[in-house]
Amino acid sequence: MRRALVLLTLWMIGIGAQASAHDVKTISPGRLAIDNSELAVGLSQDWQRPLPEVRRALIIVHGRLRNAQTYLHSAEQAASQAGQSATTLVIAPQFLNQRDIERHALPDSLLRWPGNAWMAGEPSSGPRPISSYAALDAIITRLGDRQRFPALTEIVIAGHSGGAQVVQRFALLGRQHPPLEDDGIKLRYVIANPSSYAYFDEQRPVKVDAGACPGFNDWKYGLLKLPAYATGQTAQQLEQTYIKRDITYLLGQQDTDPHHPALDTSCAAEAQGAYRLVRGHNFFDYLQRRHAQGLQQRLVEVPGVGHDGDRMFTSPEGQKALFGQ
């Protein structure tokens, strides 16, 4: 009995430590008003005033740890190394959950999502049901305000790991923003080391037993059972929009561990390959086969780097992907 109690205590301590490790330590101080609620954001410059020097906005999306400030600092460092700090506004949205709100005694007006639902574009659990993708749309819309950003020429939406999963799915489902294009503002996407991708049909690089893995083609791995955000868009329309996006797939050459603790090992993800590097190549090959006429997309490997967002974005390849140089 005593041994059982000791084992139970150790197990509970382990669970507690794991939960603590996933707690958000820092809440981003910026706020963006969205439909009578607020999104927490980190900012490299004060966007409450006009920013006439800013020519590029970099929206950097955190991963499952919701550590927006960490990603903000990485993006700021990358901008500094590329000599682009003065002309780049970095924006790091923070998709909080209910535990974050309670632990930090945050106001009820702040948006929060259940678990990792924000990664798939699901609606927030409070104070209003707003898709995480709609929150990204709201940031993009704000950046189109020429009174605040008269010199803006491009918006780059980037993410690493879990954040890259968000960016890839957002590039697929995200709304069109014709006013931006008409006003000379270009949208680009940088997808770095995601665990998985959303495919357009049932084809996968690894054979799937649909009976053993019935949800392998459901969202967020395929286009079945799409979130409400995508209502009104057919699979064909989504694919045609996606292939026209300007996308860089940034893959670490050393991101090859099939047992990485943060790797998605669900059957739906395993059908895409054994580890992130090969999953990225498999998806890009899939795109090229389906669209042999050519894509406005490219795959770039980062030598000597594994699953490390900071090193990915501050590498020469990462800086070129983010800042075009």
Rank of each mutant, 00 (worst) to 15 (best):
I91V: 15
Q77S: 14
G126S: 12
E102W: 07
W113S: 01
E102I: 13
Q81W: 00
S125C: 01
P127I: 06
A134G: 12
D137W: 00
F95Y: 14
S131A: 08
S80L: 13
Q94G: 07
G83P: 08
L106D: 08
W118A: 03
E76V: 04
V90M: 07
G121Y: 06
H73E: 12
L111R: 00
T88F: 07
S85V: 04
S80Q: 14
S124E: 09
G83F: 10
T70I: 04
A92N: 07
I130V: 13
Q94F: 02
L65M: 14
Q84P: 01
S109P: 00
W113I: 03
P123A: 11
A68P: 01
H104I: 09
N97T: 01
H73W: 08
P129C: 06
W118L: 01
P93W: 06
L110S: 05
A134L: 03
A68W: 00
R64H: 09
E76L: 11
S109G: 04
H104L: 11
A75V: 00
P123K: 10
D137V: 05
A78F: 06
Q94L: 07
Q69H: 10
H73P: 01
I101C: 03
T87H: 14
N116T: 12
P114S: 13
L96E: 01
R64W: 12
A82Q: 13
G126Q: 11
L136I: 15
A117V: 02
L65K: 13
G83W: 13
L136C: 03
